[in-house]
Amino acid sequence: MNIFETSHINMNLAGSSQKEIMSSLADLAFDINVINDKSELIKDYLEREEESTTGFGNGVAIPHARSNNIKSATILFGRSSSDIEWDSLDGKPVNTFISLLVPDDQADEHLKLLAKLSRKLVHKDFVEILKTGSEAEVFEAINNIVNN
């Protein structure tokens, strides 16, 4: 399976709190069959947030997890209709989510793709597409990075 496909996008994540959003992302991951257990993923997300927030500002968060609960390296994308409190670096709530899921024993090439994507996240034009672009634009933007 590809690291990113159109089915990995949910432009209308249900939830109004951090935990609910994580739960919706876990539903999405489960539906596309990349995790074994939903609650396990939520736990991993939360643990990562404990270390330090993944809300890096500008309304975007990148909840991510690395665990053997994850079957293959995957990128999820979502937006929520309401603003979610995420304890972000700039203190602002978030509504755009890009989630990176990695199995424990991930092969190098996929990690490199995720690294490439992460690097893009500090570029304003790219983040702008994630925040305001249409589903097709978002798919193209991410796909250009990881599937080429």
Partner: peptide, 29 residues
């Protein structure tokens, strides 16, 4: 912590910022 996202975001951010200031920069991830 996970070695997936922030390592690279910050590396990129440091590189971009330093280059914009005209500095020579090398970032180990």
């Amino acid at each position: 912590p996970a070695g997936i996202a922030h390592t690279y975001m910050v590396a990129e951010a440091i590189e971009e910022k330093a280059k914009s200031l005209g500095y020579e920069v090398h970032v180990e991830t």
